[in-house]
Design a protein around this nucleic acid. Structure first.
Length: 872
RNA sequence: GAAGGUAUAGCUCAGCUGGUAGAGCACCUGCUUGACGUGCAGGGGGUCAUAGGUUCGAGUCCUAUUAUCUUCACCA
């Protein structure tokens, strides 16, 4: 105990200093230790383009709580940090910056662009990391990784080649989701569907033989340019005669067949569908079945190609207008209906996706998914909460092949090489590939891989795979993966797939899913709404501990939570409360007292009460953390520290310290013992303030490396606990009475206690005086004071003779009210005990406790009646 | 279309394997209480969405309904 604490806790003066202290003492460093059990978390790598937002703050708070708890519980912990190169997001950002300078990607060329991208990464990529440090994250920074660093790149190539050799990766012309803004393909998972109001254009396609026409409806008339057939259902009697005939495509004049395909729903629309294999996934399938030509009518940026001079260069939506107008003029338009339909949009930029046929790389997922499904089904990997397993199965059991090639430069370049001479292709880890047939230098595929391809390997690539490393051996499989439900499909499922395939072992035991942090009105925080809360501003204003505490306390697994300023404030107040509790202790310790944190031998009743309750708390907090119920753990800590420790125990020590001597000394020791234990329990949640207080109080070694308290039999005092509760109950009852009568605390009054448990109540005299405004206390088995306020508890009657303020009628009325309430209790319990079914089927223990309750209630009733007699 | 979440005090949410409803904030009333007004003490406020069912007993389990949110799929 060396320094004086200020009246308010000032996080700004503490946090950076403490974080530095931890770093200097190597507290975050992971060390494989055969004597210990490993506990590993790999961070969901934030994008290098990212700025810390509430989602990160929540995610990292939960991880830090878990890792700190496990570290203090004797595990060899590793929290492995890193960042993701985020191909599309980063490239888009850099391209945008270049655009402002009037430069395009092609101006710089691939190498020039990459140089610029790396420079950008060096400059800004570390920003999010320093922001994570502000949160107090106890990551092992010496092991920080990046999805495009050497090791991760090696892993990516290894996996690509392995998949290729096993025939699990193929290249082919398929219909894929194309983003005309990002100018790249994206995977199914990256498409977001949204309802949009649109139209249904009914068109008339004339039969080539002049015998009439077929009417069909479309939501995308501009794709008519690429129609290569019209389809009807083979069972549809209305159109049987037309199958095999041809129609002439309006505006284009191309002759296209009428085919029969079961894909067509006879009930929907007219029962006739135009088939555009190049621009619709279903049409593409129909095209394959009927061997139809595939005609791409759009450029990369979704403009009509030169093949259609009249519309060439028009954006797809302008082309739509033009084509509709021309159809109308040509008499091909029958009618227009209002129609709302789902439109796929790019999850990055929101642009409407253009389904498009192109040559891409794919991973065959069906076989890979099987062991990954089994790992969860068998319980080897657990989701918390469990219900998200449904989400996972839903996605995995109906999985499509994964389009992994991206037409971007920032990312892992696909390790496939082509020989321009002989057309040979090889997939190899060797960068300088030479054609095995003609010996010529080969050209590498220009595309890069989906960002998620490398993040899928994160749990083992970061530990050194494909090399055999000590870390990989010791820390894999990792323990808990903490992430939001929004990336189960993107990331979690693919890590499980990759782990099972390459490590032949699950990547983690448990997936802890959390929800979103919404704004105070329950809306998603988003840039466009401008309702985002910046965690850094909150930290600046209230401190990282307050933010963390708020995020942890409002949270139950899998559920969204709302951010509100009030909640942060109350967390800040809590930190301040703890701070001031310490201040009180330090102000009241003798200067020469050595802070050992040991419990004295001779404990008073109230000491045992506290010790026992704190012992229970340690057990509960540990249990809750083990079950990932962090929010429950937090609220128990809050209640204990504020109510039990501060409002009761500290208040109880005041008269003792004032009294001096042995009782003061014991109280001081217990105060210290308890606060040290509290600091340890609270540390995972509020690391900065607890460490700061620990240093001020005890110092020498870091709190964060102390042992987390556990339940100990020797600290359990059950009967003392309930004995002291009797005193508390009595004090509360007196306060209540006095408040009702508007007696200020400064007005002291004599107190007479009638009880059969004078042993217990004798130990509370000092507290009745201090906390219940008693000027004197007398305890005996029988008290009879006529003109006194009376309060009744289970085991005592308390008399406060205050004749000057007594109103007999009021007093009688109040006792009547109390009597009614006890009578109601008795009625309920008696009813229960009179119920034969209850007696026959309820557990013995419960029946016993109900009987006891009834007994107590009857005693109380007797006391109340006795007191009422005094007023009649 | 399929699956799932949520519905509890004015607000935000707890409530574990069923046993007479809890917290924080807000509100009201007191308090210059030797750590803290970012505080202390006391108080009011809920037919636990609706209707059934299981049970001796349901906020808790089951079924249906309503409201709301989410994920997946999707018919041109």
């Amino acid at each position: 105990m060396k320094k004086e604490l200020g009246k308010l806790y000032e996080p700004k003066e503490v946090e950076d200093k403490i974080y530095k202290y931890w770093l200097e003492n190597d507290c975050f460093k992971a060390c494989p230790d055969p004597e210990k059990k490993p506990y590993t978390i790999v961070i969901p790598p934030p994008n290098i383009t990212g700025q810390l937002h509430m989602g990160h703050a929540l995610d990292n708070t939960l991880q830090d709580i878990l890792i700190r708890y496990k570290r203090m519980s004797g595990y060899a912990t590793l929290w492995l940090p890193g960042t993701d190169h985020a191909s599309i997001a980063t490239e888009a950002k850099i391209v945008e910056a270049m655009r402002k300078e009037g430069i395009t990607k092609d101006d710089l060329g691939r190498d020039g662009f990459l140089e610029r991208a790396w420079a950008w990464k060096e400059q800004y990529g570390g920003r999010i990391i320093s922001q994570l440090k502000k949160m107090g994250s106890s990551c092992d920074w010496s092991r920080e990784r990046f999805t495009m660093d050497e090791g991760c790149s090696k892993a990516v190539k290894e996996v690509f080649c392995k998949y290729y050799e096993k025939g699990l990766i193929y290249r082919g012309e398929r219909i894929i989701n194309w983003c005309p803004h990002c100018l790249t393909s994206i995977s199914n998972a990256e498409v977001e569907y949204e309802d949009q109001a649109g139209h249904f254009w009914h068109l008339r396609y004339p039969l080539t033989d002049g015998s009439g026409w077929l009417e069909l409806a479309t939501t995308r008339p501009e794709t008519l340019l690429g129609d290569t057939a019209v389809a009807v259902n083979p069972k549809d009697e209305r159109y049987k005669a037309f199958i095999g005939k041809t129609v002439t495509l309006p505006l284009v004049g191309r002759e296209i067949p009428v085919v029969a395909d079961p894909y067509v729903d006879m009930e929907f629309g007219t029962g006739v569908v135009k088939i555009t294999p190049a621009h619709d996934p279903n049409d593409f399938e129909v095209g394959l079945r009927h061997n139809l030509p595939v005609i791409n009518v759009m450029t990369d940026d979704a403009k009509i190609t030169e093949d259609y001079p009249k519309y060439a260069g028009l954006d797809r939506f302008e082309a739509r207008k033009a084509i509709v107008r021309d159809l109308e003029e040509g008499g091909f338009l029958v009618k227009i209906e209002e129609h709302s339909h789902n439109v796929g949009t790019c999850y990055r930029c929101g642009t409407t996706i253009e389904p498009r046929v192109s040559l891409q790389w794919f991973v065959k997922m069906a076989d890979l998914a099987k062991p990954a499904i089994e790992a969860v089904r068998s319980g080897d990997i657990k989701f918390v909460p469990e219900r998200f397993e449904k989400n996972y199965f839903n996605w995995m059991e109906d999985i499509r092949d994964w389009c992994i090639s991206r037409q971007l430069w920032w990312g892992h370049r696909i390790p496939a090489f082509y020989c321009d001479d002989c057309g040979e292709m090889v997939v190899t880890k060797d960068e300088s590939a030479v054609c095995p047939k003609c010996g010529k230098q080969m050209r590498q595929d220009p595309d890069t891989l989906d960002t998620w391809f490398s993040s899928a390997l994160w749990p083992f690539s970061t530990l050194g795979w494909p090399d055999k490393t000590e870390d990989l051996d010791y820390f894999y499989p990792t323990s808990t993966l903490v992430t939001g439900y929004d990336i189960i499909t993107f990331w979690v499922s693919r890590m499980i797939v990759a782990g099972m395939e390459h490590m032949h072992e699950k990547p983690f035991d448990t997936v802890l899913i959390h929800g979103l942090v919404r704004d105070s009105q329950g809306r998603k925080m988003s840039k466009s709404l401008g309702n985002g809360i910046d965690p850094l501003e909150i930290i600046d204003q209230y401190g990282a501990d307050a933010l963390r505490f708020m995020l942890a306390s409002g949270n139950s697994p899998g559920n969204d939570m709302r951010y509100s300023d009030e909640k942060v404030k109350s967390s800040r107040n809590f930190a301040n409360k703890l701070w001031n509790a310490t201040r009180f202790i330090m102000m009241n310790l003798p200067n020469d007292m050595e802070i050992t944190g040991e419990l004295p031998d001779a404990l008073a009743l109230e000491d045992k009460w506290l010790v026992s309750k704190l012992n229970t708390l340690a057990k509960e907090v540990g249990d809750n953390l083990d079950k990932f119920e962090l929010g429950v753990a937090v609220s128990k800590l809050y209640d204990f520290i504020w109510d039990v420790y501060c409002d009761w125990y500290i208040e109880l020590t005041k008269p003792r310290i004032l009294a001096g001597g042995e009782t003061a000394k014991t109280a001081q020791q217990v105060l210290v013992w308890a606060i040290l234990r509290i600091l340890k329990l609270l540390h995972p949640f509020m690391p900065f303030i607890t460490e700061e207080i620990w240093q001020a109080l005890k110092g020498e070694t870091p709190l964060m490396l102390e042992k987390f308290p556990v339940y100990e039999d020797s600290l359990s005092y059950t009967s003392e606990e309930s004995d002291f509760e009797k005193i508390i109950t009595a004090i509360k009852a007196i306060r209540n009475r006095r408040a009702e009568m508007n007696v200020p605390p400064s007005k002291k009054a004599e107190l007479f206690i009638e009880t059969l448990e004078s042993d217990v109540f004798n130990k509370g005299i000092m507290f009745f005086e201090r906390l219940a405004s008693a000027s004197s206390v007398e305890i005996s088995e029988s008290v009879d004071i006529p003109d006194a306020c009376t309060v009744v508890t289970d085991c005592a009657r308390l008399f406060i003779p205050m004749s000057e303020i007594i109103d007999k009628d009021k007093e009688l009325a109040r006792l009547n009210k109390e009597k009614a309430s006890v009578l109601k209790d008795i009625e309920i319990i008696s009813k229960k005990l009179g119920n034969e079914g209850f007696l026959a089927k309820a557990p013995e223990q419960l029946i016993e406790s109900e009987k006891l309750k009834l007994e107590r209630a009857n005693e109380k009733l007797a006391k109340i009646e006795q007191s009422m007699l005094a007023f009649m």
